[in-house]
Design a protein around this nucleic acid. Structure first.
Lengths: 204, 204
DNA sequence: AAAGTAACTAAACAGTGTTCATATTTTTCA
DNA sequence: TGAAAAATATGAACACTGTTTAGTTACTTT
């Protein structure tokens, strides 16, 4: 049955073409410009065709989000290379912040927008972030095994570190920092200083 | 010239009626349902009329945001009453989290959505959050004067505390925590535990 | 070649923010 | 008081949005 396999492959290729167009649009033009109609035009199909491959826009955005998370993983793989878990923790934090600043629209899709989360079925977990979260979790586990951290529980530690990083990046992405009598450079310094400070606080 | 004053007052009353309708809609029906047309219908005017009082939807949302921030201030005034700044810091944090959980749509408007920030003119600061931020700033200043905190700079301290709180609340509001194999109760416990842990970390 | 299936799309629906020419109401002033 | 002027309000339109459906085209199977 080579034909049905080819069909399935073609279907998958079309799905990929759609989210690649959407991803590119998201990165270069931003969320506002990324409409079903614009995506359709980009891949030279009718808008209705997209609905043969994705249930609705939320489901499409969920797949674009997945794409974005694998980009974050790549960034982690490039930046967080030290065998020393404590050094690596710093690398992860800086990589995270750099990613957010470089791709604010993607960051919004990954961590701030409600839309993509609507397509998760009830009682099913969010898988898109799993791999990148594990990078942090593993690093913190290693740190704690060496007794480097003032934490008791690894999970709680991971959530705290994530929350701290996300708090800083998302306030920046959502323009809440620029708005407070700060220059763009000042904002960046403050974010880095906050992270340095936080890492110092959690070090035992 | 009592007439022009009355006119100005009436104009202000109309502006208020509009944002009160919008605020109520935002809280009960959510952002999605709060359209110019729906607001207009609620106050029994034509949609076009709203544009005589507000330049665009972003400007309107900015005023609704202002309303929301004064509600947060009220919450702080109710909850953060201790004369002991260290105790009060805990009260502020818990008040903040409770507010976010009670009014997620408002929280989004205050700290996550881009839209309301678009109406801030270039090189003009964001004033809506000033008063509530000062509550935190004052508290931390008092704490540091008593040597209770492991911070050097008050501003940096305030940003860090805010970022931590916002990180936790916004991840919750944007459904990033529920999505990770956690029950709603578990999420709440984790947020509170993270805050307790953080307060412990910053205590000298 | 005919029948059946899969892929695609034009057109429409109901909604959005926003603008503008056209009323309607209110105020001013002769 | 009555006409001109100014302020206020709106109906209708424009250009969008996500989504659905009926109908067409293209390919596969018999």
């Amino acid at each position: 049955m080579g034909i049905s396999e080819r069909k399935a492959r073609e279907k998958q290729e079309m799905r990929l073409r759609i989210i690649e167009a959407a991803t590119e649009m998201f990165m270069s033009e931003g969320y506002e410009k990324t409409s079903i109609r614009n995506i359709a035009e980009k891949i030279e199909y009718s808008p209705a065709t997209i609905y043969l491959y994705y249930k609705d826009k939320d489901e499409l955005l969920y797949e674009v989000q997945k794409q974005a998370f694998s980009q974050l993983e790549e960034a982690f793989a490039r930046d967080a290379t030290s065998p020393d878990p404590w050094v690596r923790l710093g690398q992860i934090c800086h990589s995270y912040v750099r990613f957010g600043k470089a791709h604010p629209e993607m960051y919004e899709l990954m961590f701030m927008m409600r839309a993509p989360m609507n397509s998760i079925k009830e009682n099913e977990p969010w898988r898109n972030n799993t791999d990148s979260f594990v990078v942090l979790l593993t690093c913190l586990t290693e740190c704690m095994e060496k007794g480097l951290l003032r934490f008791k529980d690894v999970t709680l530690a991971a959530f705290s570190v994530w929350a701290m990083g996300h708090g800083l990046v998302s306030l920046d992405v959502s323009c809440r920092l620029q708005a407070m009598n700060m220059t763009e450079q000042h904002v960046e310094e403050m974010i880095l200083a906050s992270i340095e400070q936080y890492l110092n606080l959690i070090k035992s």
